[in-house]
Design a protein around this nucleic acid. Sequence first.
DNA 1: GTGCACATTATTGTATGCAATCCAGCGTAC
DNA 2: GTACGCTGGATTGCATACAATAATGTGCAC
Lengths: 237, 237
Amino acid sequence: MNSSADGLLTPSDLTENGTQQIRDAIRDAIVERRLAPGTKLSESDVGGLFNVSRTLARAALQALSYEGLVSVEKNRGAFVAYPSPEEARQIFAARRLVEPGILKSAAERITPAEIKQLRQLLVEEGRLMNERGQSARRAEIKASGDFHLMLASFSGNLIMQRFMEELVARSSLVIALYGQSSASSCGHSEHGDIITALERKDVDKACDLMLHHIAHIEADLDLRERKSFGLREAFER
Amino acid sequence: MNSSADGLLTPSDLTENGTQQIRDAIRDAIVERRLAPGTKLSESDVGGLFNVSRTLARAALQALSYEGLVSVEKNRGAFVAYPSPEEARQIFAARRLVEPGILKSAAERITPAEIKQLRQLLVEEGRLMNERGQSARRAEIKASGDFHLMLASFSGNLIMQRFMEELVARSSLVIALYGQSSASSCGHSEHGDIITALERKDVDKACDLMLHHIAHIEADLDLRERKSFGLREAFER
DNA sequence: GTGCACATTATTGTATGCAATCCAGCGTAC
DNA sequence: GTACGCTGGATTGCATACAATAATGTGCAC
Protein backbone atom coordinates (compact mmCIF):
# COMPACT_ATOMS: atom_id res chain seq x y z
CA MET A 1 0.00 0.00 0.00
CA ASN A 2 2.75 2.41 0.93
CA SER A 3 2.08 5.90 -0.30
CA SER A 4 3.70 9.20 -1.00
CA ALA A 5 4.47 10.12 2.55
CA ASP A 6 7.90 11.24 1.48
CA GLY A 7 7.70 14.46 3.38
CA LEU A 8 7.26 17.46 1.10
CA LEU A 9 10.16 16.68 -1.13
CA THR A 10 8.00 17.50 -4.10
CA PRO A 11 8.61 21.06 -5.31
CA SER A 12 5.18 20.95 -6.83
CA ASP A 13 4.72 17.77 -8.81
CA LEU A 14 7.30 15.78 -10.59
CA THR A 15 4.92 14.79 -13.29
CA GLU A 16 7.15 16.21 -15.98
CA ASN A 17 4.29 15.86 -18.40
CA GLY A 18 4.22 17.81 -21.59
CA THR A 19 1.23 19.54 -20.05
CA GLN A 20 3.36 21.14 -17.38
CA GLN A 21 5.66 22.76 -19.87
CA ILE A 22 2.80 24.19 -21.88
CA ARG A 23 1.09 25.42 -18.77
CA ASP A 24 4.26 27.10 -17.53
CA ALA A 25 4.97 28.64 -20.90
CA ILE A 26 1.52 30.14 -21.20
CA ARG A 27 1.55 31.28 -17.61
CA ASP A 28 4.83 33.07 -18.13
CA ALA A 29 3.44 34.70 -21.24
CA ILE A 30 0.43 35.92 -19.29
CA VAL A 31 2.38 37.09 -16.27
CA GLU A 32 4.91 38.92 -18.41
CA ARG A 33 2.03 40.47 -20.30
CA ARG A 34 2.86 39.17 -23.69
CA LEU A 35 -0.65 37.77 -23.79
CA ALA A 36 -3.31 40.40 -23.23
CA PRO A 37 -6.36 39.72 -21.07
CA GLY A 38 -9.25 38.49 -23.15
CA THR A 39 -7.07 36.87 -25.78
CA LYS A 40 -8.61 33.74 -27.13
CA LEU A 41 -6.61 30.58 -26.58
CA SER A 42 -8.00 27.97 -28.91
CA GLU A 43 -7.05 24.39 -28.25
CA SER A 44 -5.87 23.82 -31.79
CA ASP A 45 -3.70 26.91 -31.79
CA VAL A 46 -2.10 26.11 -28.47
CA GLY A 47 -1.58 22.51 -29.47
CA GLY A 48 -0.11 23.47 -32.80
CA LEU A 49 2.19 25.99 -31.18
CA PHE A 50 3.71 23.36 -28.92
CA ASN A 51 3.42 20.46 -31.35
CA VAL A 52 1.10 18.42 -29.24
CA SER A 53 -2.44 17.26 -29.63
CA ARG A 54 -5.49 19.15 -28.53
CA THR A 55 -5.70 16.78 -25.59
CA LEU A 56 -2.62 18.17 -23.91
CA ALA A 57 -3.39 21.73 -24.88
CA ARG A 58 -6.79 21.33 -23.33
CA ALA A 59 -5.32 19.92 -20.14
CA ALA A 60 -2.92 22.86 -19.88
CA LEU A 61 -5.69 25.39 -20.38
CA GLN A 62 -7.80 23.61 -17.83
CA ALA A 63 -4.94 23.77 -15.35
CA LEU A 64 -4.53 27.48 -15.94
CA SER A 65 -8.20 28.00 -15.33
CA TYR A 66 -7.78 26.50 -11.86
CA GLU A 67 -5.18 29.16 -11.19
CA GLY A 68 -7.52 31.89 -12.33
CA LEU A 69 -5.31 32.94 -15.22
CA VAL A 70 -7.53 31.56 -17.93
CA SER A 71 -11.28 31.42 -18.06
CA VAL A 72 -12.86 28.62 -19.98
CA GLU A 73 -16.42 29.07 -21.10
CA LYS A 74 -18.44 26.06 -22.01
CA ASN A 75 -18.60 25.45 -25.72
CA ARG A 76 -16.84 28.76 -26.33
CA GLY A 77 -13.27 28.08 -25.45
CA ALA A 78 -10.51 29.45 -23.28
CA PHE A 79 -9.48 33.10 -22.90
CA VAL A 80 -6.80 34.86 -20.98
CA ALA A 81 -8.64 35.92 -17.86
CA TYR A 82 -10.13 39.37 -17.79
CA PRO A 83 -10.57 40.05 -14.08
CA SER A 84 -13.40 42.37 -13.20
CA PRO A 85 -12.71 45.36 -10.93
CA GLU A 86 -14.40 43.51 -8.12
CA GLU A 87 -12.22 40.50 -8.70
CA ALA A 88 -9.19 42.77 -8.73
CA ARG A 89 -10.19 44.21 -5.38
CA GLN A 90 -10.56 40.74 -3.96
CA ILE A 91 -7.16 39.69 -5.21
CA PHE A 92 -5.51 42.57 -3.42
CA ALA A 93 -7.68 42.09 -0.37
CA ALA A 94 -6.43 38.52 -0.27
CA ARG A 95 -2.86 39.72 -0.49
CA ARG A 96 -3.34 42.19 2.32
CA LEU A 97 -4.85 39.40 4.35
CA VAL A 98 -2.14 36.89 3.65
CA GLU A 99 1.17 38.60 3.13
CA PRO A 100 1.68 39.96 6.63
CA GLY A 101 1.25 36.48 7.99
CA ILE A 102 3.69 35.09 5.48
CA LEU A 103 6.13 37.80 6.37
CA LYS A 104 5.82 36.94 10.05
CA SER A 105 6.41 33.29 9.30
CA ALA A 106 9.39 34.10 7.14
CA ALA A 107 10.87 36.44 9.75
CA GLU A 108 10.96 33.64 12.30
CA ARG A 109 13.05 31.33 10.19
CA ILE A 110 14.95 33.48 7.75
CA THR A 111 18.73 33.10 7.61
CA PRO A 112 21.31 35.75 6.72
CA ALA A 113 21.99 33.86 3.50
CA GLU A 114 18.37 34.15 2.54
CA ILE A 115 18.33 37.86 3.27
CA LYS A 116 21.28 38.11 0.96
CA GLN A 117 19.27 36.35 -1.72
CA LEU A 118 16.48 38.87 -1.32
CA ARG A 119 18.94 41.73 -1.61
CA GLN A 120 20.41 40.19 -4.71
CA LEU A 121 17.00 39.96 -6.29
CA LEU A 122 16.57 43.60 -5.47
CA VAL A 123 19.70 44.80 -7.20
CA GLU A 124 18.68 42.74 -10.21
CA GLU A 125 15.35 44.48 -10.15
CA GLY A 126 17.04 47.85 -9.92
CA ARG A 127 19.32 47.07 -12.81
CA LEU A 128 16.38 46.14 -15.01
CA MET A 129 14.55 49.27 -13.95
CA ASN A 130 17.22 51.42 -15.51
CA GLU A 131 17.32 49.46 -18.69
CA ARG A 132 15.33 50.19 -21.80
CA GLY A 133 13.36 47.85 -23.95
CA GLN A 134 10.41 45.53 -23.77
CA SER A 135 12.31 42.55 -22.56
CA ALA A 136 13.82 44.48 -19.69
CA ARG A 137 10.36 45.67 -18.76
CA ARG A 138 9.10 42.11 -18.73
CA ALA A 139 11.98 40.88 -16.66
CA GLU A 140 11.35 43.71 -14.26
CA ILE A 141 7.71 42.73 -13.89
CA LYS A 142 8.78 39.21 -13.11
CA ALA A 143 11.47 40.24 -10.65
CA SER A 144 9.04 42.48 -8.82
CA GLY A 145 6.70 39.55 -8.30
CA ASP A 146 9.55 37.23 -7.47
CA PHE A 147 10.34 39.31 -4.41
CA HIS A 148 7.02 38.40 -2.89
CA LEU A 149 7.36 34.80 -4.01
CA MET A 150 10.79 34.43 -2.51
CA LEU A 151 9.49 35.78 0.75
CA ALA A 152 6.71 33.21 0.59
CA SER A 153 9.18 30.43 -0.03
CA PHE A 154 11.13 31.51 3.03
CA SER A 155 8.00 31.12 5.11
CA GLY A 156 8.56 27.39 4.86
CA ASN A 157 4.95 26.76 4.01
CA LEU A 158 4.47 25.22 0.62
CA ILE A 159 0.74 25.74 0.65
CA MET A 160 1.03 29.45 1.28
CA GLN A 161 3.78 29.60 -1.29
CA ARG A 162 1.56 28.15 -3.95
CA PHE A 163 -1.29 30.41 -2.99
CA MET A 164 1.00 33.41 -3.31
CA GLU A 165 2.10 32.23 -6.72
CA GLU A 166 -1.50 32.32 -7.78
CA LEU A 167 -2.10 35.73 -6.26
CA VAL A 168 1.02 37.29 -7.75
CA ALA A 169 0.23 35.94 -11.18
CA ARG A 170 -3.32 37.20 -11.04
CA SER A 171 -2.07 40.56 -9.77
CA SER A 172 -0.02 40.87 -12.89
CA LEU A 173 -3.15 40.47 -14.95
CA VAL A 174 -4.94 43.08 -12.91
CA ILE A 175 -2.11 45.56 -13.29
CA ALA A 176 -2.02 44.91 -17.01
CA LEU A 177 -5.69 45.77 -17.19
CA TYR A 178 -6.12 48.58 -14.71
CA GLY A 179 -2.63 49.92 -14.03
CA GLN A 180 -2.12 53.57 -14.80
CA SER A 181 1.40 54.72 -14.15
CA SER A 182 3.82 53.39 -16.68
CA ALA A 183 6.26 52.94 -13.83
CA SER A 184 5.04 49.62 -12.62
CA SER A 185 8.19 49.63 -10.56
CA CYS A 186 6.74 52.10 -8.12
CA GLY A 187 7.37 49.78 -5.26
CA HIS A 188 11.05 49.17 -5.74
CA SER A 189 12.35 51.10 -2.77
CA GLU A 190 9.61 49.66 -0.63
CA HIS A 191 10.92 46.18 -1.23
CA GLY A 192 14.26 47.32 0.12
CA ASP A 193 12.68 48.84 3.20
CA ILE A 194 10.90 45.61 3.94
CA ILE A 195 14.14 43.66 3.77
CA THR A 196 15.81 46.12 6.09
CA ALA A 197 13.04 45.83 8.64
CA LEU A 198 13.21 42.07 8.30
CA GLU A 199 16.93 42.11 8.87
CA ARG A 200 16.44 44.06 12.07
CA LYS A 201 13.86 41.51 13.20
CA ASP A 202 11.34 44.30 13.36
CA VAL A 203 8.45 42.19 12.20
CA ASP A 204 5.72 44.69 12.97
CA LYS A 205 7.49 47.32 10.95
CA ALA A 206 7.99 44.93 8.09
CA CYS A 207 4.31 43.99 8.07
CA ASP A 208 3.35 47.61 8.16
CA LEU A 209 5.60 48.36 5.22
CA MET A 210 4.20 45.40 3.35
CA LEU A 211 0.64 46.59 3.82
CA HIS A 212 1.57 50.03 2.60
CA HIS A 213 3.40 48.53 -0.32
CA ILE A 214 0.35 46.56 -1.40
CA ALA A 215 -1.81 49.61 -0.89
CA HIS A 216 0.50 51.61 -3.14
CA ILE A 217 0.26 49.06 -5.90
CA GLU A 218 -3.48 49.05 -5.59
CA ALA A 219 -3.64 52.84 -5.52
CA ASP A 220 -2.10 52.91 -8.94
CA LEU A 221 -5.09 51.05 -10.35
CA ASP A 222 -8.11 52.63 -11.96
CA LEU A 223 -10.77 50.19 -10.94
CA ARG A 224 -13.76 51.76 -12.58
CA GLU A 225 -16.25 49.50 -14.26
CA ARG A 226 -15.31 49.60 -17.88
CA LYS A 227 -18.13 47.50 -19.10
CA SER A 228 -16.41 45.67 -21.87
CA PHE A 229 -16.97 48.69 -24.09
CA GLY A 230 -16.85 46.76 -27.28
CA LEU A 231 -20.23 47.79 -28.54
CA ARG A 232 -22.49 50.77 -28.33
CA GLU A 233 -20.49 52.64 -25.69
CA ALA A 234 -17.42 52.51 -27.84
CA PHE A 235 -18.94 54.46 -30.70
CA GLU A 236 -21.60 56.69 -29.25
CA ARG A 237 -19.76 59.83 -28.31
CA MET B 1 -13.96 40.96 -28.06
CA ASN B 2 -16.09 41.64 -25.01
CA SER B 3 -15.20 39.39 -22.13
CA SER B 4 -16.46 37.93 -18.92
CA ALA B 5 -16.36 41.13 -16.90
CA ASP B 6 -19.73 40.31 -15.50
CA GLY B 7 -18.71 41.06 -11.95
CA LEU B 8 -18.31 37.94 -9.85
CA LEU B 9 -21.68 36.49 -10.61
CA THR B 10 -20.04 33.15 -11.13
CA PRO B 11 -20.29 30.98 -8.02
CA SER B 12 -17.31 29.11 -9.29
CA ASP B 13 -17.77 28.20 -12.92
CA LEU B 14 -20.96 27.53 -14.69
CA THR B 15 -19.36 24.98 -16.87
CA GLU B 16 -21.80 22.32 -15.75
CA ASN B 17 -19.55 19.77 -17.35
CA GLY B 18 -19.78 16.16 -16.46
CA THR B 19 -16.33 16.62 -15.03
CA GLN B 20 -17.59 18.93 -12.32
CA GLN B 21 -20.07 16.40 -11.05
CA ILE B 22 -17.51 13.66 -10.89
CA ARG B 23 -15.03 15.93 -9.18
CA ASP B 24 -17.59 17.01 -6.60
CA ALA B 25 -18.74 13.47 -5.98
CA ILE B 26 -15.23 12.22 -5.38
CA ARG B 27 -14.35 15.23 -3.28
CA ASP B 28 -17.38 14.65 -1.08
CA ALA B 29 -16.41 11.03 -0.72
CA ILE B 30 -12.93 12.04 0.35
CA VAL B 31 -14.03 14.78 2.70
CA GLU B 32 -16.65 12.57 4.31
CA ARG B 33 -13.97 9.89 4.66
CA ARG B 34 -15.68 7.24 2.65
CA LEU B 35 -12.50 7.08 0.60
CA ALA B 36 -9.43 6.39 2.67
CA PRO B 37 -6.14 8.19 2.03
CA GLY B 38 -3.94 6.20 -0.31
CA THR B 39 -6.83 4.54 -2.12
CA LYS B 40 -6.08 4.02 -5.76
CA LEU B 41 -8.38 5.84 -8.15
CA SER B 42 -7.88 4.29 -11.54
CA GLU B 43 -9.22 6.16 -14.50
CA SER B 44 -11.15 3.21 -15.81
CA ASP B 45 -12.80 2.54 -12.47
CA VAL B 46 -13.80 6.14 -11.95
CA GLY B 47 -15.05 6.42 -15.49
CA GLY B 48 -16.99 3.21 -15.25
CA LEU B 49 -18.52 4.24 -11.96
CA PHE B 50 -19.95 7.41 -13.45
CA ASN B 51 -20.59 6.01 -16.89
CA VAL B 52 -18.25 8.33 -18.69
CA SER B 53 -15.07 7.81 -20.62
CA ARG B 54 -11.61 7.82 -19.18
CA THR B 55 -11.18 11.30 -20.60
CA LEU B 56 -13.62 12.85 -18.16
CA ALA B 57 -12.50 10.71 -15.29
CA ARG B 58 -8.96 11.79 -15.91
CA ALA B 59 -9.96 15.45 -16.03
CA ALA B 60 -11.77 15.12 -12.72
CA LEU B 61 -8.80 13.44 -11.06
CA GLN B 62 -6.51 16.09 -12.45
CA ALA B 63 -8.76 18.78 -11.01
CA LEU B 64 -8.71 17.11 -7.62
CA SER B 65 -4.95 16.98 -7.70
CA TYR B 66 -4.87 20.77 -8.03
CA GLU B 67 -6.86 20.93 -4.82
CA GLY B 68 -4.42 18.66 -3.07
CA LEU B 69 -6.99 15.94 -2.45
CA VAL B 70 -5.57 13.51 -4.97
CA SER B 71 -2.00 12.88 -5.89
CA VAL B 72 -1.26 11.70 -9.38
CA GLU B 73 2.02 9.95 -10.01
CA LYS B 74 3.36 9.76 -13.50
CA ASN B 75 2.61 6.46 -15.18
CA ARG B 76 1.28 5.09 -11.93
CA GLY B 77 -2.09 6.71 -11.54
CA ALA B 78 -4.09 8.71 -9.05
CA PHE B 79 -4.48 8.08 -5.34
CA VAL B 80 -6.43 9.73 -2.59
CA ALA B 81 -3.86 12.05 -1.10
CA TYR B 82 -1.88 10.83 1.86
CA PRO B 83 -0.62 14.03 3.47
CA SER B 84 2.63 13.71 5.35
CA PRO B 85 2.85 15.01 8.90
CA GLU B 86 4.80 17.98 7.63
CA GLU B 87 2.13 18.71 5.08
CA ALA B 88 -0.49 18.42 7.81
CA ARG B 89 1.37 20.96 9.89
CA GLN B 90 1.50 23.31 6.95
CA ILE B 91 -2.19 22.97 6.30
CA PHE B 92 -3.01 24.00 9.83
CA ALA B 93 -0.38 26.69 9.80
CA ALA B 94 -2.08 28.07 6.72
CA ARG B 95 -5.41 28.02 8.49
CA ARG B 96 -4.02 29.83 11.50
CA LEU B 97 -2.56 32.37 9.16
CA VAL B 98 -5.68 32.90 7.12
CA GLU B 99 -8.74 32.36 9.25
CA PRO B 100 -8.33 35.30 11.63
CA GLY B 101 -8.15 37.59 8.63
CA ILE B 102 -11.23 36.03 7.11
CA LEU B 103 -13.02 36.40 10.41
CA LYS B 104 -12.11 40.06 10.55
CA SER B 105 -13.36 40.58 7.04
CA ALA B 106 -16.56 38.75 7.80
CA ALA B 107 -17.13 40.68 11.00
CA GLU B 108 -17.12 43.95 9.11
CA ARG B 109 -19.92 43.00 6.77
CA ILE B 110 -21.92 40.33 8.51
CA THR B 111 -25.67 40.86 8.88
CA PRO B 112 -27.96 39.57 11.62
CA ALA B 113 -29.54 37.24 9.09
CA GLU B 114 -26.19 35.73 8.37
CA ILE B 115 -25.45 35.25 12.05
CA LYS B 116 -28.73 33.43 12.23
CA GLN B 117 -27.58 31.17 9.42
CA LEU B 118 -24.44 30.36 11.36
CA ARG B 119 -26.44 29.56 14.46
CA GLN B 120 -28.73 27.34 12.44
CA LEU B 121 -25.77 25.42 11.10
CA LEU B 122 -24.65 25.00 14.66
CA VAL B 123 -27.85 23.44 15.92
CA GLU B 124 -27.77 21.12 12.95
CA GLU B 125 -24.27 20.16 13.93
CA GLY B 126 -25.35 19.58 17.50
CA ARG B 127 -28.25 17.44 16.43
CA LEU B 128 -25.98 15.22 14.34
CA MET B 129 -23.55 14.99 17.19
CA ASN B 130 -26.11 13.23 19.34
CA GLU B 131 -27.14 10.84 16.62
CA ARG B 132 -25.71 7.42 16.08
CA GLY B 133 -24.57 5.84 12.87
CA GLN B 134 -22.04 6.29 10.15
CA SER B 135 -24.09 8.64 8.05
CA ALA B 136 -24.69 10.95 10.97
CA ARG B 137 -20.98 10.95 11.66
CA ARG B 138 -20.29 11.92 8.07
CA ALA B 139 -22.84 14.66 8.06
CA GLU B 140 -21.33 15.94 11.27
CA ILE B 141 -17.89 16.07 9.72
CA LYS B 142 -19.29 18.03 6.85
CA ALA B 143 -21.23 20.43 9.04
CA SER B 144 -18.19 21.08 11.16
CA GLY B 145 -16.25 22.15 8.09
CA ASP B 146 -19.19 24.06 6.70
CA PHE B 147 -19.03 26.40 9.66
CA HIS B 148 -15.64 27.63 8.56
CA LEU B 149 -16.73 27.75 4.95
CA MET B 150 -19.82 29.78 5.70
CA LEU B 151 -17.70 32.22 7.61
CA ALA B 152 -15.42 32.46 4.61
CA SER B 153 -18.34 33.09 2.31
CA PHE B 154 -19.46 35.93 4.56
CA SER B 155 -16.07 37.55 4.15
CA GLY B 156 -17.20 38.55 0.69
CA ASN B 157 -13.97 37.42 -0.86
CA LEU B 158 -14.43 34.63 -3.35
CA ILE B 159 -10.72 33.95 -3.59
CA MET B 160 -10.32 33.43 0.12
CA GLN B 161 -13.48 31.38 0.11
CA ARG B 162 -12.09 29.00 -2.44
CA PHE B 163 -8.80 28.78 -0.61
CA MET B 164 -10.63 27.91 2.56
CA GLU B 165 -12.57 25.23 0.73
CA GLU B 166 -9.27 23.67 -0.19
CA LEU B 167 -7.89 23.96 3.32
CA VAL B 168 -10.96 22.54 4.99
CA ALA B 169 -11.09 19.61 2.59
CA ARG B 170 -7.45 18.83 3.12
CA SER B 171 -7.90 19.17 6.87
CA SER B 172 -10.47 16.43 6.70
CA LEU B 173 -7.90 14.16 5.10
CA VAL B 174 -5.38 15.02 7.78
CA ILE B 175 -7.84 14.30 10.56
CA ALA B 176 -8.76 11.00 8.93
CA LEU B 177 -5.10 10.05 8.96
CA TYR B 178 -3.80 11.44 12.21
CA GLY B 179 -6.85 12.17 14.33
CA GLN B 180 -6.95 10.37 17.68
CA SER B 181 -10.06 11.16 19.65
CA SER B 182 -13.11 9.57 18.16
CA ALA B 183 -14.93 12.74 19.05
CA SER B 184 -13.97 14.74 16.01
CA SER B 185 -16.63 17.13 17.21
CA CYS B 186 -14.40 18.42 19.94
CA GLY B 187 -14.79 21.93 18.68
CA HIS B 188 -18.52 22.20 18.71
CA SER B 189 -18.92 24.60 21.61
CA GLU B 190 -16.04 26.65 20.30
CA HIS B 191 -17.95 27.36 17.14
CA GLY B 192 -20.74 28.76 19.24
CA ASP B 193 -18.37 30.94 21.22
CA ILE B 194 -16.98 32.38 18.02
CA ILE B 195 -20.44 33.30 16.80
CA THR B 196 -21.23 34.97 20.09
CA ALA B 197 -18.07 37.05 19.96
CA LEU B 198 -18.86 37.92 16.38
CA GLU B 199 -22.34 38.99 17.33
CA ARG B 200 -20.93 41.31 19.94
CA LYS B 201 -18.60 42.78 17.35
CA ASP B 202 -15.70 41.71 19.51
CA VAL B 203 -13.44 40.84 16.62
CA ASP B 204 -10.28 40.39 18.65
CA LYS B 205 -11.99 37.92 20.92
CA ALA B 206 -13.42 36.06 17.94
CA CYS B 207 -10.00 35.80 16.32
CA ASP B 208 -8.52 34.60 19.55
CA LEU B 209 -11.17 31.95 19.90
CA MET B 210 -10.65 30.91 16.32
CA LEU B 211 -6.92 30.46 16.85
CA HIS B 212 -7.56 28.37 19.93
CA HIS B 213 -10.14 26.37 18.07
CA ILE B 214 -7.69 25.52 15.31
CA ALA B 215 -5.06 24.73 17.88
CA HIS B 216 -7.43 22.34 19.60
CA ILE B 217 -8.15 20.50 16.38
CA GLU B 218 -4.46 20.24 15.71
CA ALA B 219 -3.73 19.13 19.26
CA ASP B 220 -5.90 16.09 18.67
CA LEU B 221 -3.56 14.91 15.94
CA ASP B 222 -0.74 12.47 16.37
CA LEU B 223 1.69 13.81 13.83
CA ARG B 224 4.50 11.34 14.27
CA GLU B 225 6.21 10.05 11.21
CA ARG B 226 4.55 6.78 10.50
CA LYS B 227 6.69 5.80 7.63
CA SER B 228 4.08 4.09 5.52
CA PHE B 229 4.73 0.91 7.45
CA GLY B 230 3.49 -1.37 4.72
CA LEU B 231 6.53 -3.56 4.43
CA ARG B 232 9.35 -4.62 6.63
CA GLU B 233 8.33 -2.59 9.66
CA ALA B 234 4.89 -4.10 9.60
CA PHE B 235 6.09 -7.66 10.07
CA GLU B 236 9.40 -7.54 11.89
CA ARG B 237 8.54 -7.51 15.53
C1' DG C 1 14.86 -23.58 -3.79
C1' DT C 2 16.57 -19.05 -5.08
C1' DG C 3 17.41 -15.41 -8.20
C1' DC C 4 17.20 -13.36 -12.46
C1' DA C 5 15.59 -12.59 -17.30
C1' DC C 6 11.79 -12.46 -20.09
C1' DA C 7 6.94 -12.49 -21.51
C1' DT C 8 2.34 -11.06 -20.28
C1' DT C 9 -1.06 -8.08 -18.56
C1' DA C 10 -2.92 -3.97 -16.90
C1' DT C 11 -2.85 0.97 -16.69
C1' DT C 12 -1.61 5.35 -18.05
C1' DG C 13 -0.14 8.89 -21.85
C1' DT C 14 -1.35 10.87 -26.11
C1' DA C 15 -3.51 11.34 -30.55
C1' DT C 16 -7.34 11.16 -33.43
C1' DG C 17 -12.30 10.97 -34.85
C1' DC C 18 -17.07 11.96 -34.52
C1' DA C 19 -21.02 14.49 -32.60
C1' DA C 20 -22.77 18.74 -30.62
C1' DT C 21 -22.61 23.56 -30.23
C1' DC C 22 -21.69 28.12 -31.42
C1' DC C 23 -20.66 31.94 -34.65
C1' DA C 24 -20.82 34.44 -39.08
C1' DG C 25 -22.43 35.33 -43.39
C1' DC C 26 -26.11 35.30 -46.48
C1' DG C 27 -30.62 35.54 -48.11
C1' DT C 28 -35.39 36.49 -47.74
C1' DA C 29 -39.60 38.53 -45.94
C1' DC C 30 -41.73 42.53 -44.43
C1' DG D 1 -33.55 49.18 -44.82
C1' DT D 2 -34.16 46.31 -41.01
C1' DA D 3 -35.09 42.15 -38.81
C1' DC D 4 -35.37 37.43 -38.83
C1' DG D 5 -34.13 32.68 -40.03
C1' DC D 6 -31.08 29.57 -42.25
C1' DT D 7 -26.96 27.38 -43.66
C1' DG D 8 -21.73 26.60 -43.69
C1' DG D 9 -17.68 26.65 -41.23
C1' DA D 10 -15.10 26.39 -37.25
C1' DT D 11 -14.44 24.96 -32.43
C1' DT D 12 -15.31 22.54 -28.47
C1' DG D 13 -17.05 18.09 -25.82
C1' DC D 14 -16.42 13.52 -25.41
C1' DA D 15 -15.25 8.83 -26.65
C1' DT D 16 -12.30 5.68 -28.58
C1' DA D 17 -7.88 3.76 -30.36
C1' DC D 18 -3.17 3.17 -30.19
C1' DA D 19 1.51 3.67 -27.99
C1' DA D 20 4.37 3.67 -23.90
C1' DT D 21 5.28 2.48 -19.34
C1' DA D 22 4.95 -0.06 -15.11
C1' DA D 23 3.36 -4.26 -12.53
C1' DT D 24 2.94 -9.05 -12.49
C1' DG D 25 3.67 -13.81 -13.47
C1' DT D 26 6.49 -17.58 -15.55
C1' DG D 27 10.32 -20.31 -16.65
C1' DC D 28 15.04 -21.30 -16.78
C1' DA D 29 19.71 -21.42 -14.87
C1' DC D 30 22.33 -22.30 -11.03
